[in-house]
Design a protein around this nucleic acid. Structure first.
Lengths: 149, 149
DNA sequence: AAAATACCTTACTAATATTGTCAAGTATTC
DNA sequence: GAATACTTGACAATATTAGTAAGGTATTTT
């Protein structure tokens, strides 16, 4: 359950590829597509969204490609996924574009809301730099959920 | 993103209804269906899974209905969702029934794995009793993610 | 200037998953 | 034995996902 779409997954990986090329040359879409074994056409849709969201910019012409707008340490996974799939919304109640329909006293409303917030809080703490450095594993060990029932 | 299916949502609410009737009489499916404005036929599918999963049992005949097998404080949301939708698996890589196909060094593997674990850890801390008591909100305030970068 | 490279946009389609409905049972109690 | 209630399996409508296809436009290098 709670599967992330391939768009989100590929998007994060594409951003990773672009971030890795940071400082050197722009990363052409073809290169990203090859490394991820995804079609250029599909990637174009994804990168387009990220571009409109102000996360990357494109450089045309030979030698061109995509470049990050911000530094890798300033790009969170949350920001990437938000652009590609909108905010975390476990239920339609919590989707800003929909809203609560059901009558009952919304017993579960707080449950799904809390879960969504927890997820986003986590995704905000992880950045592209973490992916590049491969520090995620270590870092995660230090992130603990403290229950004080 | 990360939407939970209605099956999972209705399932949790159905379990809530059954838990609320605990100690009194078995809760007939018709009653649950009415309170949630869901068809009996659809609910049957859901309750059937929960029954096979050992979370509830059914009592036939007039006056019959569904009853929890364990106490509300021993039934976590995680257990319910696991039965209805399988374990949290953000990507197919992490689905026990599938597995990793992609070639690349799995840069994001730990990311999705960590997220999945975080989600499940949270869902394990919330039980039907919490929903009944309405303590979720307060409790959640005390659950903090401690980042020690 | 023209060719090569690379991005840009829109439309469309196939596959899959979700969200249910429907029908015909079986079991139990009053 | 009639009413109540659960049980099972097949099926269909809808929505979403995942991806293709085609025909652009913009920029740089030679």
């Amino acid at each position: 359950m709670l599967r992330l779409s391939t768009k989100g997954q590929y998007g994060v990986r594409a951003m990773f590829e672009i971030a890795r090329g940071q400082g050197n040359k722009p990363v052409p879409i073809k290169e990203i597509a090859e490394r991820q074994a995804v079609s250029v056409a599909y990637l174009e849709q994804i990168l387009n969204k990220l571009k409109n969201g102000g996360l990357i910019r494109s450089i045309k012409g030979p030698g061109g490609g995509y470049v990050l707008i911000n530094k890798p340490e300033d790009v969170s996974i949350s920001a990437i996924l938000n652009e590609l799939e909108g905010p975390v919304a476990i239920t339609s109640c919590l989707d800003p574009e929909e809203g609560c329909v059901r009558v009952d006293g919304c017993v579960t409303y707080m449950l799904w809301k809390s879960l969504g917030e927890k997820i986003d809080a986590f995704l905000r703490t992880v950045t592209l730099k973490d992916l590049i450095a491969g520090t995620l594993f270590k870092k995660n060990l230090k992130l603990k959920v403290k229950s004080q029932k």
